[in-house]
Design a binder for these strands. Structure first.
Lengths: 137, 137
DNA sequence: ATAGATGCAAAGGGTTTGCACTTGA
DNA sequence: TCAAGTGCAAACCCTTTGCATCTAT
């Protein structure tokens, strides 16, 4: 039986959430998305944010990822494969280029490599310079 | 003032938990540790497991890490730096060698690299061969 | 009209914490 | 002795889900 493709509607909430990601380049937490999206849809609910993030991720418009040791999931637009540098001082995330070849080489013989997740951590330039947190909003 | 170093006592619970990690080479979840340790200390509590895992990690005897997209934290003995390959089929974790130099090179200029976390994922050999899950207990 | 979407509150899963009791040194 | 450690239950945080209501199409 041909499964009927679920219809997707365009709602104020959904568009507001999409816009938030168009306005921010850095990875966002669900609560950050909620806060930002509420500027357009004041009574937006957190459940809707979660449902929408999940939906947009399934559609491939967003990608979610978690930091080691943190239970929360960050989301950002799915544009180009890259990784992250996490500053333990200001807790911001920075994009880092990927070197697929090297990483793939680590895959044990006979194993099928489908993807990878990498997080570097330490201090970002602003923090290592002794300055306070930078402003990479 | 010289801060008084907190005294560490040797208890049945703590030794039982340590023993669990000596008996298993693969990363374990807190509940798995609980289950295994209860064979020695029947009425061991989950809270004690969490407190002990935290303590042993602070002492450097264990290392904890999380898989992208999973909220749980795995623990294993801190012996030699390495990473993991996660099989999406049988959900087992395999050790993978590390290539520090390459990863460190990804660190943006001016940033201080203190560490990194890498997870490769795909199919392990047994699963890609069409066989059921292997037995890498 | 009607299936998809929303908001709220309740429920879930993992982890932490408060507190009285127990125990190792 | 007595502070460190433990067990239990309640509390927490993040996320999902049930359900009545709302709204694109």
């Amino acid at each position: 039986m041909p499964r009927k493709p679920i219809q997707r509607r365009s709602t104020r909430q959904r568009e507001a959430i999409r816009q938030v990601f168009k306005d921010h380049s850095r990875p966002l937490l669900p609560t950050e998305v909620l806060k930002a999206a509420r500027r357009r849809v004041p009574n937006l609910g957190l459940a809707t944010v979660y449902r929408t993030l999940k939906r947009l991720t399934e559609e491939g418009w967003l990608v979610g990822f978690g930091l080691p040791g943190q239970s929360q999931t960050y989301y950002e637009r799915a544009q180009g494969h890259h990784h992250h540098f996490y500053c333990r001082e200001c807790e911001k995330l920075f994009k880092v280029n990927c070197v697929p070849a090297h990483l793939k080489d680590l895959t044990p013989a006979g194993f099928v490599h489908e993807g990878h997740e990498l997080v570097l951590y330490g201090l970002c330039k602003p923090c290592s310079d002794g300055a306070g947190a930078g402003s990479t909003e």
